[in-house]
Every structure is written in structure tokens, then in C-alpha cells.
Design a binder for these strands. Structure first.
Lengths: 217, 217, 217, 217
DNA sequence: GATGAATGAGGCTTCATTCAT
DNA sequence: GATGAATGAAGCCTCATTCAT
């Protein structure tokens, strides 16, 4: 029985700090979130953060990895035993549902992730690679099975699908943040954008595209 | 002869500061780019920045608006006189080419834009709205003409397409930034990702989707 | 005939700049009044200020000297031919009236004068010395004439009287600046403090003091 | 045992910072005293100031309130059990003695207080209100007892007396600050102005006024 | 004389991180 | 392990003053 380190990911306080960080960063953004604010929300002292994380940047990385790990686990479970278009659709619907269930985590993932060059340029992001590999694997298999068109490289297709998902997540998150309407047309209703229902459109675009009469293509 | 305000957008120094800001921010990120670094790159004193922009945030907003304005102008010219799928394809290819021509501007647009809550939550972003309206307009017209499937709302379709474009831009920009390969798979070749050639795949996904045998849908 | 220097006190622009400085400094205070704000109010360019004044500090000194010079001239005229208590009362009433007639100048004189150590510690202030000498002269003469008690040195008496005048000026100026009431008792009326009528109380205090039954002293 | 907040007014460092601020501001003036100079004098880091005070302005306010609180406490003790002219005289003599005992604090109170609009226009200054109320209370009681003339409103009389005290404090403080003489009259002796002895003159002016033969009034 | 764009020193304040308790 | 007071580097911005036009 390996004894877990008291300050490791297994500890309750480690998770509590990450939870607090998600909330605070979702509200104020990474660079505008002092470590002290995260500590206060987590109910610990400022210095305690540094017993669990080497730096503020490491905290954000851990946060991102935990979230992607959760997503990957759920997605793999959702597509277990499925193949081809069925698996692809299951993947998309599951992902959208996961975004929907945790708005704060979605906000951090979508808005704050691209931020620091620390992250996108120097950080390798193995969980995100795993995410793309899972999605690309579904596509590659379906292409080999002759169910999907093989002219687009699977990893490119995977990235395009992620782009669609991420952009709609952004639109959804921002629509929640603002009292909506955008200020332009004072009379218009908020028009709550339902991201779960939007999954239909994503699936439609990804599978059959926008063109009606395929013969004319 | 219209007299332009000496510190207005028409002045040479105004443009020089924005150009310097694009370069510096592309390299270091917005929050890690001191105003003094931008000033130095532009060859002006720190205080001079504030003769042209009210604050560091306003500088970033101006930078983004200038770029989106350029993109919108070029895109509108590219689709002039075109309709339906032809217009849609022209839009996509033009956009990708524009991204390709100015890597630093693309990096800022793609990575730094989502950053500050100032931007995504409080800033209305009229040029981006215009961008989406143009793209949505193409789709709506083609739907009414019976050329595109009408079941997806045009503004949602526009956002999904933008998501694809933005995500591939991000992948491209990061592939350029890193000595490539990312360190994950030691043996793999850099494999220069050519975003212009990727336009084919984007067009394919958007128009006909991934599924081969549509009848089985 | 001496030709007046074009940027000297005789020039119209010199006076215009001082007038603007009084207004701006009365509103914002000396240290919070940028030279550029004074220039704008005066309708001149920033650099023009420096054709007329060596520095911002010199501008404030000039402003103060001009005002004290005006006051001294008016006060001397008011007491011309008068002596003793009559002169003292005329002095006081004239001074209060002058304060009342130019609120902005009074505000600067009263609030901003004590500010900079530049002023009170290193600046000799000849016009203020003249002011005290005039008032002290009235008192000294009246003491010699046996009309006023001689036990208090005239220059001390003069300073005490100035203290009374200055403090009431301050109270008056602040009562004008705030919508009044002080925020403490929401229901109380503004109670416009009339400084001209307050002259009666000043004269009373200075001449006969507060004590009713002098025999008991 | 009541636990005091470690950064509250009760802490030793809080008082040390205020003491340092009094010294530095007395020497250089508020606006010419960088926070860093106060920190250095107090023997703390710049940032530490902000653990104890929200801003530089708040520091000055706290400084003023602490001093006025001390003065009010001492004055109330000095007049305890006294009434009428006796109380009035005790009040004046005590105040003058307090000024005399702490020259630096007196300098800040007298010279720097009127400064920022923050102070005189937006700040309500409860301790100063208390000061005036105490003094006004003495006068009002004596008026009702028939000992003082009732024609001047007590709060106006209180302000006039404060004006006298404040002006003499200013004269005294400036006489100490300069190598005296001021450079104006090269031959004159420094002539140390003793503010404690000046109390006699203040009392004389306030009680019986300047006029010798009251019958001629 | 007049202009106002440009300068750059310097101020206030924030905040990641440390360390004595 | 936990705390939180203390640090001090660094950032954004202001503004008195200059000088080429």
C-alpha cells in the first residue's frame, strides 16, 4: 500500500484548492486572480497553496489537467463499445453535456486556457493530446471501415471538431456571463442559448455538412 | 484636405505602436508584455503610448479592431458578386490566406483575444459581430436559395465555421512557435502544417461533412 | 517710457493664464491640477505657460502675489483717512467683502496656500508681510492713541485677527463646495453661511471679546 | 484578552508607520513625500504600508484622526469640572501646550491638513467636529449662564477661536522651520516666538477683546 | 511668440513568494 | 503541516518640462 503524500492530489485540501481556483479564475480571469483570493475561497492560508503547488502557474496547469482527465475518462466511457458514426455522435453529445454540467470549469477551459505563453508554447499538455487521440481514433477507425470519407487526416478532422465544440462553448459561456442581448438591440430578449440542444447542429455539420443536394457537389 | 488629429489612427506613429504591440504581444502574451516593452519596440518613450491610447487595454482593443477591420474588408471583397457554396468557399479560402500572411497578427488574434474579461465580457466587439454577420449572411442566403440545408440557424453555423478556422489557426500558430514536435514523440518529423492547404479539408467538412454514404444517414 | 515685456504681468495673456489657474486650482487643488489643464482653460498651448512663468511653482506664487496685491490695495483704500477702531472695523469688513466677491480666489488663498513647503518655508511672501504690516499698523497706532489695549504686540494681534478671518473664509468656502449638511444629519437644512454678515461677529470678538461683565475680569 | 488584528491600529507597527509619516510629511509635505520615504523611515518595506493602510490618502487621514483624538482626550481632561471663562481659558492653554509639545505633529496638522480636496471636501472629519463641539459647548454653557455675551453663535465663536489658535500655530511652526528672520530683514534677531507664552494674548483677545474703554463702544 | 507632441523620471500600488512561528 | 505578515520587484500611468516647427 503506497502511502499517498499528504499534499498530493489525493488529499482533500489539494482538491479544495483546485475547486476554489476554478471558481475564482472563472470569475476574474487568471491574471486578475491573486493567489490570496484563491486561498481565501479555499479557506486556507496563502502560504498553504505553496505546500500543494510549486507556483501559481503550476496550479493552473494542474487545474487544466484535472479537468481534461475527467473529460477524457467520461468520454471514453461514453464511447465504450461504440464505433463509427455512432461513436462520433456519442462523443460529441457527451462532451457538450460535460461542458453544460460545469459552467465554471468550462469558462476556465475555454477562456483562460489560451492565455499564458507558458501554457500554449512551453507546456505539452498530455491530457489534451490524449483527448485529440481519442477523437482522432474514432475517425480513423471509421475511415478504415469505409464509413467516413478518408480524404481528411484524422488528426485534422479531430481538431476541427474540437474547434466547433470549443467555439460554441465560448459563445455559451459568454451568453451566460452577460445579461445578454449585447447592448445593441435594447428590445431583444436574452434568448438563452442552449448548448445541449446545439449538439444536434454540431452532429449534423460534422456528419453531413451543410450542402443539401450532394449530387451537385 | 482633411486635417487628421496628430495622435489619431491616421498618424504614422499610431500605426507604428500598434505594429510593435502585435509583435511583442505575439511573443510574450498580453499580460507579460509591459507597456515599456511595446514602447521600446516602437521606438518611442513609454509616455508616448498614452498620447495615442488611453490605457494598455485600449491599445489591445484597438489592435484587435484594426485587424478585424482589415479581415472584414478583404473578406467582403473576396465574396463580392459570389453566392451560395461558391461564396462560402471563397470566404474560407480568403480567411485562411489572410491568417497565413500575417502570423504575428494571427497569433494575437487567436491566443490573446479570449484573455481579459474586459474583452470577452464587457467589450462588445462590433467588428467581430460584423464578421459573423457577413458569414451568416452568406449561409442564410444559400439556405433561402435551397442550396444549403436550412435546419441549422445561420448564426450558429457561422460560429461553428469560425470555430474550425480559429482552432486550425491556433494549431498552425503553435506549430510555428515551437521547434515543433513538442517533445512528446521524439522521433516524429516537424511536419510543417500548411494551413493554406488545410482549407480544402475545411471546405470539405463544412459542405459535405465527413460521412461517405449519405443515404445511410 | 519703458516698453513692457510681451510676456510680463502687463500682458493680457499673462493675466488670462493666472485667471485660468485660479479656477482650475480652486476646483482640483494645486497638486492635482496639471499644467495642461490650466493651459486648456486659458486657451493657450501647454508650452505657452512657460513663456510667462518659469515653472508651475512660480505660477502659483505669482497667483498668490497678484491676489494679495489686490487685497492690499483695496484694504489700504478702505482705511484711508480712518484711525483706531473705525479703521480696524473698516479693514475687517472690507476684507470679508473681498473674500466674498471672489470665491475661487478665496478658495485658492485659503486652502491651497499652506500646501507646498516651497511656499511656507522657502518663500518669503512680501505681499503677505505687507498685509500684516498694514493691519499691525492700525493696531499699533490705536494702542499709542490709547484706544486699544497695549499689552498684546501689534503683530501678534494682527496675526490672530488674520487667523479669525482665514478660518471663517475656510468654513465659508467649504460650505459652498459641499451640498452641505456634512452628511451627518440628513434632515438638517444647508444653512447657507453668510460670511459678510459674519463680519459683525468678528468685529465684536476683536473689539470687546466674549465676556459680558468686564468688571469681573 | 481581546485579540487585536495584527495589522490594526493596536499593533506596534501601525503606530510606527504613523510616527514615520508624521516626521516625513512635516519635513517634505504630503505630496512631496513618497510612500517609499515613509516606509524607509518606518523601517518597513514599501508594500508593508498597504497591509496597514488602504492607500496613501487613508494613511494621512488616519494620521490626522489619531492626532485629533489625542488632542480631544487631553482637552476634555483639562476642562473636566470647569465652567465658563475658567474652562475656556483652560481649553486654550491646554491646546497651546499640546501644540508646543509635538512640533512635527503640529506642522502636519496646521500645514498639511487643508491640502487635498479628499480631506476638506469629501472627508467628514468626525474628530474635528468633536473638537469644535467641545469648544462650542463651553461657550454655549457660559452664554446661558450669563457669563459670556450671547450675540455670537457658539459654533461661530468656536471657529474663530480655532482660527486664532491655528494661525499662531502656523506662525510658530514656520518660525521654527526657517533659520528665522526669513532673509527679509538682515539685521533682525531670530526672536524665538514662544507659543506657550502667547496663550496670554489669545485669552485676552477672546475674553475682553482689544478695546480699552468699553464704555465708548 | 506660440504650439503641442514627445519625453522619461517617478509615483502609487499589486501580488507571487518566503519564512519565522 | 499550516499560517499570514512581510517583502520588494515590477507594472501602469501621470505630468512638468522641452524643443523643433
Amino acid at each position: 500500500m503506497a502511502a499517498v503524500s499528504a499534499t498530493g492530489p489525493g488529499s482533500e485540501k489539494y482538491q479544495r484548492i483546485l475547486d476554489a481556483a476554478v471558481d475564482v479564475i472563472a470569475e476574474r480571469g487568471y491574471f486578475s486572480s491573486p493567489v490570496s483570493a484563491i486561498a481565501k475561497r479555499a479557506g486556507v492560508a496563502d502560504g498553504t497553496i505553496y505546500l500543494y503547488f510549486k507556483s501559481k502557474d503550476e496550479l493552473l496547469i494542474s487545474l487544466f489537467e484535472r479537468r481534461m482527465h475527467q473529460l477524457n475518462a467520461a468520454l471514453k466511457a461514453a464511447i465504450a463499445g461504440k464505433h463509427g458514426r455512432v461513436a462520433l455522435e456519442a462523443f460529441i453529445r457527451c462532451y457538450v453535456q460535460l461542458l453544460h454540467d460545469e459552467p465554471a470549469a468550462t469558462e476556465v477551459l475555454t477562456i483562460e486556457l489560451r492565455q499564458s505563453s507558458k501554457f500554449m508554447k512551453e507546456y505539452d499538455n498530455p491530457e489534451f493530446v490524449d483527448f485529440l487521440r481519442t477523437l482522432g481514433g474514432i475517425i480513423a477507425a471509421a475511415q478504415e471501415a469505409g464509413e467516413l470519407d478518408g480524404s481528411t487526416p484524422p488528426h485534422i478532422a479531430a481538431r476541427m471538431i474540437f474547434g466547433i465544440l470549443d467555439e460554441l462553448a465560448l459563445a455559451w459561456v459568454l451568453a451566460r456571463a452577460r445579461p445578454t442581448n449585447g447592448g445593441a438591440t435594447p428590445g431583444s430578449r436574452p434568448k438563452k442559448f442552449d448548448i445541449v440542444r446545439a449538439a444536434d447542429w454540431i452532429v449534423a455539420l460534422v456528419t453531413t455538412g451543410l450542402v443539401l443536394d450532394k449530387e451537385s457537389a
